[in-house]
Amino acid sequence: MSNPTVDVPRTVSAGGAGRFLIWASIVLLCAWVLVPIYLLMVNALSSPAQVSGFPKSGLPGFDFASLQFFAGFAGVAKALWNSILVAVLTMALSIGIGAPAGYALSRFDFPGKEVFRMLVVMTRAFPLPLLALPLAVMFIRTGLDDTALGLALVHTVLAIPFAVLITFSLFSGIPLELEEAAWTLGCNRWQAFQRVVLPLVLPGIAASAVFAFTISWNEVFAAAVLTIENRTLPAFLIQNLNVSPLHLKFAGGAAMVIPALIFIFAVRKYLFAMWGIANR
């Protein structure tokens, strides 16, 4: 109030210097995100000799020798397959278990609801990959050690809080009135869910499934602890880091990054809605 010119620089900055500053920082930040990925791709698309060569030009050699070497390297194909298998299992488990809980939380009021919410929220205060240590013992006893299912169970613990909270927010976004309308029009609970709720939440459920997939795809520690023969890609890479040549690391890195880019692109519309509610 004491400064009547406050509004003047605002209007000026909106059109001139301020705008330039904003766009300059955007370009800078985009470069900060994209250039390292680009450099990884340059290495992945260069021959092994080019990868260890010096100095580098910063342009890819468009030589697929590194990637071919990676693809043909013993254990890589199996590791890729294991990664996909574990991620798919994680996806199915976390949605299959988490979605009903999310629905119950959004639709019913019942004693014990807060206790369950606390249990889910509490998982966030715990370093979850550490679960792999005691579970390794438990899995040996039950025959789940070194299996895709065993690892998927641990990854599901990581993914389930998100699955519950995200599906909770998805279901909460569907007015109860729509379900009630379906009940008055002749549906039982299940039919109403199937015909009215499910079609409306399906895209969101798919997004949270992809999210669960990504969590599993990227997890390193538990995967490295719990698998020996049936390694996932990250477990395989970290186990061989100090013995593998550079071009193998970079090709492996690229193999991990590219699917992740696609996943994030697929769920980009839901990213913010998911986190907006999930952090309440």
Partner: peptide, 18 residues
């Protein structure tokens, strides 16, 4: 801006190794 969100810490390590 949100691209790195989908990357694992291992991948990030390899990226900066490059």
């Amino acid at each position: 801006f949100s691209i790195p969100l989908g990357l694992s810490d291992l991948a990030a390590g390899i990226v900066w190794l490059a």
